[in-house]
Design a protein around this nucleic acid. Structure first.
Length: 368
DNA sequence: CATATTTGACCCTC
DNA sequence: GAGGGTCAAATATG
């Protein structure tokens, strides 16, 4: 925790420094010859940077206010992993007790929801390919829902004790929208789904197997009962992200307000991955730099994102308003490339804006 | 053979 | 008791 706080402090300073540096750059762009796009981008970056800083402060407050877990240890994630989920409990006598732990822990997992619109023809992007490697462990028909809800957990749950899970529910209203509810943080090493960070095959947590993809496609087809075919032309139109926080119903829930998409940088320290993971889990993956239209002054935050901002390291994650809040991210967004990789846009943006020179992730001490 | 999905059953919370 | 979440055996796939 102390490490986390220290990192948090450094991050905060880095964000503020970055904002300052960006403001400087913006001032250099205030001459008439400078393009409006460049200025707008810098403004976005500055806003994003400060939003992150504010969010970090909020998150820190949340952590401080976080009630101690009533069960388990101070490190619920790891203790849970070590105490094994139900399936790994061989001792029947222990089983019941451990089950209780499972369900208690379930409650204290951070949880947030995304609504992702699948706009590509494959139907595999969006919630089904968010960069992590998920394994389906269940499916259930939900009352009032036309489509069954799929339950996924991190493939590395057993190998690395990663407790991240997600639920995928296809929207009734718009069948191309998936509501993805994430729970828990990825604690698997790497935890770096962003192609931006490491396209390397060693990135075992960032790729889904071909088998996985095919199965998902089959599943999609199965779920398409009311709408048998969803052949959507590749339309990478306007990207809009709608973020709203909503009541969590559990004060135990922690929501990391933002994270950095530049991945874990090889650092497997869980504390250092708190933000990166949470962001990745929210599909931002370093792909988006939201332009805040409205600060988090209301229950719902809306911000648009432009593909030209795909390089942003700042997610500008919406503020967590209350410890009870749950973040719902509605991504009405298409993948910005056929490969669903933001790298192309990343490069474009880098070309456009010379902003990275001060970016803290270049600093090896950033995650130290 | 290893790994992933399917699916009925079980357990917990409300 | 209903509904939701998870387990685990059976099954499928590469």
């Amino acid at each position: 925790m102390e490490l986390s706080m220290e990192w948090e402090h450094k991050t905060l300073i880095s964000e503020l420094s970055q904002g300052k540096e960006l403001a400087k750059q913006l001032s250099n762009h205030l001459n008439p010859s400078s393009s409006l796009e460049a200025r707008q981008f810098l403004v976005d970056k500055i806003l994003s940077s400060y939003e992150k800083a504010l969010s970090l402060l909020n998150w820190g407050a949340l952590v401080d206010q976080q009630p101690k877990p009533t069960i388990g240890t101070v490190e619920p994630l790891h203790s849970f992993a070590n105490s094994s989920p139900r399936s790994e409990v061989s001792d029947q006598d222990c089983k019941e007790e451990c089950n209780k732990d499972v369900y208690k822990k379930r409650k204290i997992q951070p949880r947030w929801t995304e609504q992702v619109k699948v706009c590509s023809g494959t139907g595999l992007e969006g919630p089904l390919d968010d960069g992590y490697s998920w394994r389906k462990y269940g499916q259930k028909d939900i009352l009032g829902a036309n489509f069954p809800r799929g339950y996924y957990r991190c493939t590395h749950r057993h190998s690395q004790g990663c407790l991240a899970t997600k639920q995928v529910q296809r929207s009734d209203e718009d069948h191309s929208i998936f509501e993805v509810t994430y729970r828990g943080r990825h604690t698997c090493s790497q935890a770096s789904p962003s192609p931006l960070a490491s396209p390397s095959p060693k990135n075992d947590c960032s790729k889904q197997s071909k088998y996985h993809r095919k199965q998902q496609q089959l599943q999609l087809q199965r779920e398409e009962k009311p709408k048998p075919t969803e052949e959507i032309s590749v339309n990478f139109g306007s990207d809009l992200v709608q973020v709203k926080s909503e009541d969590l119903g559990s004060k135990d829930d922690i929501f990391p307000p933002f994270s950095f998409p530049c991945t874990s940088l090889g650092n497997e320290n869980e504390e250092n991955n708190i933000f990166t993971e949470s962001m990745m889990e929210n599909n931002f993956l370093g792909s988006f730099s939201p332009t805040f239209i409205s600060p988090a002054t209301s229950e719902s935050n809306y911000f648009s994102m432009s593909p030209c901002h795909m390089n942003s390291f700042g997610i500008g994650y919406p503020n967590v308003q209350t410890p009870e809040s749950e973040l719902t991210t509605e991504i009405i967004s298409a993948p910005t490339s056929v490969t669903n990789s933001p790298i192309g846009d990343f490069d474009i943006s880098i070309d456009n804006v010379d902003f990275d020179t001060t970016f803290p992730f270049d600093n090896p001490d950033f995650f130290a």
